[in-house]
Amino acid sequence: MSWISALADLQQQGQPCVLVTIIEELGSTPRNAGSKMVVTADRIFETVGGGHLEFKAMELAREMLASRTQDTRLERFSLGASLGQCCGGATVLLFEPMGQPQAHIAVFGAGHVGRALVPLLASLPCKVRWIDSRENEFPEHIPHGATKVVNEEVVDEVENMPPGSYYIVMTHNHQLDLELTAAILKRNDFAYYGLIGSQTKRVKFEHRLRDRGFSPELMQKMRCPMGIAEVKGKLPVEIAISIAGEVIATYNANFGQGEKSGESVAKLMPASRRAKA
């Protein structure tokens, strides 16, 4: 596949990549200026010359993908002994991140708040899995950008999310909420975990989770009550807007800054609320 076709396909899929371009050639080089290569986390398309130069270019591009940086980068490579290539010239490569980073979000529960929240999340640069065991709770039309998942074993869906995912739990059953919470905390690789409910619910859950061996430090990463405190109201759409705002604040802080799970949203919250969480 040509680099331009690959780039178009990847952008349509919402998969981030780095476009690597030779912008300058000095002396003898394996490929001419203007040659391009597209690098994803696990694939490459086209070539900038092969050999150790290409290996180093792939390595640098994947470091950029892992850090989710959106900054372009210029690098000069001498094609001599240091790279194990005998061309003897030099080349300058431009690295351009392509594709907006996307948050992977699992929303558990298709109740009133879930039906108000998912359309908001689906309109953002997010991939949403909307999960419930009750198919009749889902609306007839699922928003573009969201995938309906009907599974009797709802907790099993926690393992189907990639590392760094966002989890929002708002099911119809407190015991199910507790089991989902335990599964998510056990993974401990989430960017955000929000549980719908009051401070009283949080205290009860923390007590039960302590009995299961979960540490207080780990439970601090759970947002409950979740959402932006300044957004008042109890209507489903008001609650949904509050939760969506907290999710947006989290991924804006996470992408490109290397924050670890749960830390960035805590920093964004008022000190008074952090003390209660």
Results as ranks from 00 to 15, higher is better:
Leu93Cys: 08
Thr147Asp: 11
Tyr166Pro: 01
Gln257Pro: 09
Ala90Val: 11
Trp130Phe: 15
Met219Pro: 12
Ser272Leu: 09
Ala240Thr: 03
Ile131Met: 01
Ala229Lys: 10
Phe77Ile: 05
Ala229Ser: 12
Ser242Gln: 05
Asn173His: 06
Leu185Ile: 06
Glu157Leu: 12
Pro225Ala: 07
Glu46Leu: 03
Asp177Thr: 08
Thr72Glu: 10
Thr40Leu: 10
Arg73Ala: 12
Asn151Asp: 14
Leu10Gly: 09
Pro162Cys: 03
Ile243Met: 00
His172Gln: 13
Glu137Trp: 13
Ala122Trp: 06
Ala183Tyr: 07
Ala191Gln: 10
Arg115Cys: 13
Pro162Gln: 05
Gln11Trp: 08
Ala229Leu: 14
Ser78Thr: 08
Ala6Tyr: 04
Ile4Met: 12
Val48Met: 02
Ile4Asn: 11
Leu121Cys: 00
Leu120Gly: 04
Pro101Met: 04
Ala240Asn: 00
Arg274Glu: 10
Pro97Cys: 05
Arg274Pro: 09
Lys201Pro: 02
Glu230Thr: 14
Ala61Asp: 00
Ala110Asn: 02
Ala277Ser: 03
Ile248Arg: 01
Gln102Phe: 03
Ser242Ala: 10
Arg43Lys: 14
Cys86Ile: 01
Val92Asp: 12
Ile23Trp: 14
Leu19Gly: 03
Tyr166Asp: 03
Arg43Leu: 15
Glu246Asn: 03
Ala103Cys: 10
Ser5Gln: 15
Glu59Val: 02
Leu10Thr: 04
Arg43Glu: 15
Asp189Pro: 09
Gly227Leu: 07
His141Gln: 12
Thr171Phe: 06
Phe95Asp: 09
Lys267Gln: 11
Leu19Tyr: 01
